[in-house]
Design a protein around this nucleic acid. Structure first.
Length: 490
RNA sequence: GGGUCAGUAGCUCAAUGGCAGAGCACUCGCCUUUUAAGCGAAGGGUUGUAGGUUCGAAUCCCACCUGACCCA
């Protein structure tokens, strides 16, 4: 590999250490204490004359004087000062520490515990071992690494230097843990269904396509888990869930990433009310788990997961806000004309249903900051949802909105195979009109429904967006460990 | 897809048509209580890429690449 000047200096130091019989990348280390544990019990251990061995990465500047040296090392959860005295550690290692050990090297230090004159808890070192030589130099010790592109391209460095980045991923893990906890407590079984699917379904989106060489078959990376989980409901499982990546071949923006993590669950003999209850429960418990309160801070808002969520009707709220009665304007053309007459700032979409969705998402949704369920989705917009018991034009469906973002979507599942076939055929018509996100016709799924699926409630929740909410991040890339970037030229 | 802004040393940033600089980091020397240690010295550049204008371009023009933000 080609090394720049700073990298070459470090490589030369590694060569010098090896010439002295010191391995740069040994297999084993002998930590006796994690740094936070040491700090928590520091004074008692110091009084007892404890000998400890800590490990970690050297961060910040080493401060080398003629016969004393100081540096800080950091393990995952803590940071402590190392205090080296030439007399204590010996000339050989003191020189080595000064000359051939660098900031960012990962080392092991053994010694006793002492406080400096300033009172700082320190390990008074009598022995050092190198665990991993860093060839790349650290970024600016004061300003750190701030360039967005550099942070994303070298996320590992971002994680080393910017601790709040690490914190986001801990929150994300807690969100997933609470999700599993609530589902497990309610008796749901965690299952795994195919990621590679011959027919993609369960959402309206464009897929990624791949190819199976032996079967000579096009396969799609799933855009949702839904249809397979509902086949399991047909198969007799009453409560199932899956948490995993789904893939949608669409643009990247503040709230979209082409691969994202979704939780989907299905509850036989339940309906969409049970699913709304589940959403409220998961969010409330997660908030309490993370903050001790039902209220969390998101950007400039305080969001309260304590009360029952408000419910807003899609057609009703559009009528109220814009004067357009979407249920009265039955054709796509009429709806577009009404939008143009009012000069509403929305994109033209390829079907009536998509246009209603666009209207709502642009005009109403961003203003829904407190937890809200939007309901009464037009049947054309929801090809897998059961018609509303009191109005066949709309469905028993909800979307869960927090901070203007959709974090979940659920419905009473359509289990009538004849209606399901008609919905699929309607989707094919949309496709013929140019809607490249229309749902495919899955005849095997209809076949499954023809064996009888119990009345069922279903739910999908976006883990990434929940992580955004609970980690107080405004872009999805800050809760995705390694967001996709275009390759650099050359 | 459209618009705006940005890309200069390892990092953070200057230099608005006239010698490409600073701070930190790094290297060398001194230093036994440092905390962004201190003092002294030295090194480090294909200014995102490729063209153009000009006596002269980091700077102006064109195209492209990468990213950020805004809009649709």
């Amino acid at each position: 590999m080609e090394l720049n000047e700073l990298q070459q200096q470090r490589a030369d130091k590694l060569a010098r250490l090896r010439a002295a019989g010191i391995e740069g990348y040994p297999a084993r280390s002998q930590r006796t204490h994690a740094i936070p544990a040491l700090l928590a019990d520091f004074d008692a251990m110091m009084t007892q004359g404890a000998q400890v061995t800590v490990v970690g990465r050297i961060v910040g500047a080493r401060r080398i004087m003629g016969k004393l040296a100081f540096a800080h090392i950091e393990d995952e959860h803590g940071r402590i000062q190392l205090w080296l005295s030439r007399a204590e550690v010996g000339d050989e290692w003191f020189e080595r520490f000064a000359n051939d050990i660098d900031t960012f090297d990962i080392i092991q230090a053994s010694g006793s515990l002492r406080r400096t004159n300033a009172g700082e808890a320190s390990v008074f070192v009598n022995h050092i071992a190198l665990l991993s030589k860093a060839i790349n130099p650290p970024p600016d010790k004061w300003h750190g690494l701030t360039d967005t592109e550099a942070r994303l391209r070298e996320r590992y460095l971002d994680m080393i230097v910017n601790h709040d980045v690490r914190a986001n991923f801990r929150v994300r893990a807690q969100v997933m843990r609470m999700m599993r906890k609530v589902l497990d407590e309610r008796g749901f079984l965690e299952v795994e269904t195919p990621v590679l699917q011959p027919i993609y379904g369960g959402a309206t989106a464009r897929p990624f396509t791949t190819f199976h060489n032996q079967l000579k078959q096009d396969l799609y990376l799933r855009i949702a888990v839904e249809l397979y989980l509902k086949r399991m409901i047909v198969g007799g499982f009453e409560r199932v869930y899956e948490i995993s990546k789904v893939f949608r071949n669409e643009g990247v923006d503040r709230t979209h990433n082409p691969e994202f993590t979704m939780m989907e669950c299905y509850q036989a003999f339940g309906d969409y009310n049970d699913m709304m209850d589940l959403v409220e429960d998961v969010c409330r418990q997660t908030a309490i788990h993370l903050t001790g309160s039902t209220v969390i801070q998101y950007q400039e808002y305080s969001i309260d997961f304590g009360p029952k969520w408000q419910r807003i009707s899609i057609p009703g709220s559009i009528l109220e806000r814009t004067g357009i009665d979407v249920l009265a304007l039955k054709t796509h053309e009429e709806l577009i004309r009404a939008i143009r007459e009012r000069k509403l700032p929305v994109e033209t979409k390829p079907s009536w249903a998509k246009q209603v969705d666009e209207l709502f998402s642009e005009i109403i949704q961003p203003s829904l900051i407190q937890p809200t369920f939007i309901v009464d989705h037009p049947v054309e917009l929801s090809p897998l949802a059961k018609r509303h018991a009191h109005d066949p034009a709309i469905t028993e469906r909800f979307e869960a909105i927090v901070a203007g973002m959709e974090i979940g979507n659920g419905y009473s599942e359509l289990n009538d195979p004849f209606d399901q076939e008609q919905r699929f055929l309607g989707q094919l018509q949309d496709q013929a009109k140019g809607d490249d996100e229309a749902h495919q016709l899955d005849s095997d799924y209809i076949n499954a429904l023809m064996y009888g699926m119990p009345p069922t409630g279903g739910l999908g929740m976006g883990i990434d967006r929940m992580a955004m909410v609970f980690a107080n991040q405004s872009t999805i890339r800050d809760v995705v460990v390694f967001p996709h970037l275009r390759p650099r030229e050359g």
